[in-house]
Design a binder for these strands. Sequence first.
RNA 1: CGGGGCGUAGCUCAGUCUGGUAGAGUACUUGCUUUGGGAGCAAGGUGUCGAAGGUUCGAAUCCUUUCGCCCCGACCA
Length: 430
Amino acid sequence: MRIENLCVKRQIGDVAGATTRGHKMAIKGGYIYQTFQGGYTLTPTGWRVVHKIENIIRDEMDKIDGQEILMPVVCTADLWRETGRYDAMAVLAKFKGSSGADYVICPTHEEVVTDYARSVIGSYRQLPFMLYQIQTKFRDELRVRAGLIRTREFIMKDGYSFHETQEDLERYYKLCFDAYYRIFRRCGLKNIIDVMSSTGDMGGAVAHEFQLVNEMGEDTLYICDCGFRANKELEDQQGGGENAVCPKCGKPMQKVRGIEIGNIFQLGKKYSDSMHMTYTAADGTEKTPIMGCYGIGVGRTMAAILEESADDNGPIWNMETAPFAVEVIGLVDKENKTLPMAEKIYNELKNAGVDVLLDSRDIRAGEKFADADLIAAPIRLIVSEKNLSRNVIEVKYRVNDFDTSSLQSEFKIETCVADTLNTIQKLLHK
RNA sequence: CGGGGCGUAGCUCAGUCUGGUAGAGUACUUGCUUUGGGAGCAAGGUGUCGAAGGUUCGAAUCCUUUCGCCCCGACCA
């Protein structure tokens, strides 16, 4: 992609209507465009980032034998009446079709997935399995906040597992727990913790949230040296509050703010029971599966990265999440040698399958560098008169979770493409 | 839904109190000079002043209504 044709508006100077660092970066860098309150268009660069996060999630879900599906965004009210949530869920958006039928825009998919799963299941031999999707949700939240941190429409990865026994659910729950840490680490997030949480509208007994510890977070978390960590909602249920003491060891707990980007629940039989999902067990009796569910806010994960990882010049992605792996910058010279060379390197990288951006505009160097900081490709190749005279291409790095001090600061022209491919691999495997 | 704030050029904003030809910076287009961290000169285009009513000779400005947006609270798989 040539930068002049990239349909993304980057912005110099202040942005109006954004207060947190991440929200400002998202607007300044042109990653999101607000279409309405609580609804954002993901721009070409924003969508690239989201897509990369999604693919990390897919990769890790598939590793624990998750099976990707896609359910409808909208469904009729009957499934929601089966579980009683049609009238119980405050954020549920409802509308009537032209025939008068009641519809909901799904805020989560327990009902829909259980309806599918019960149509498939017959025997205990089919258990366990986990189904997941990455899809748009809508929740009619009372208030939105900080760009993609809290929206009404958002992309979520939601997974649902089905088991014969509580022991098997707990075994899988732990697998998913570990996969979540791998996902967030690969996204470049550093300060992630898991906390025990309340189960809210979801039902069930055991639940954990994955929180990015960050001062602009909207959740209050309690952390104890002994390892106990809980969300304020849960803590309140246990009689905590200000000056809470740890229920496990009795010592005072530390209070921090967090952005919730994922959560997992041991649901039990709430949905499988109320929706009459059964299978035939080994002893010939009809039994109800035990369920778990596993969510990640995909857009919110991008927003969390932006809150945690940016400098004054723009966001700092890592190689797995950056919209482009490489940006080639040709600095204008009098003899017109640099731009053809930049173009040549760009084409070779593109043919090698690299996500590469070319900036060969007839503008000043400073403007290109500042713009490059907003797009934040981890590898920046600079083609200039002074470098060409030495037969090299200058390399600069912008990456949030890799020590680049041991990497080359210039490539020889002849080996530039191979060296770049090599370096991309290094930045991918930490 | 309560409290506070804001809607004027693509963007950031002034002008509103005290009514009188629509503004600045930046961005954009063209030309010349520049060219390693958002250049200089010259010329050029840019608006339903969020919308609708009302008052007035005259409304961005005053009055009423309405729509949208931001922040705080309540709420929150």
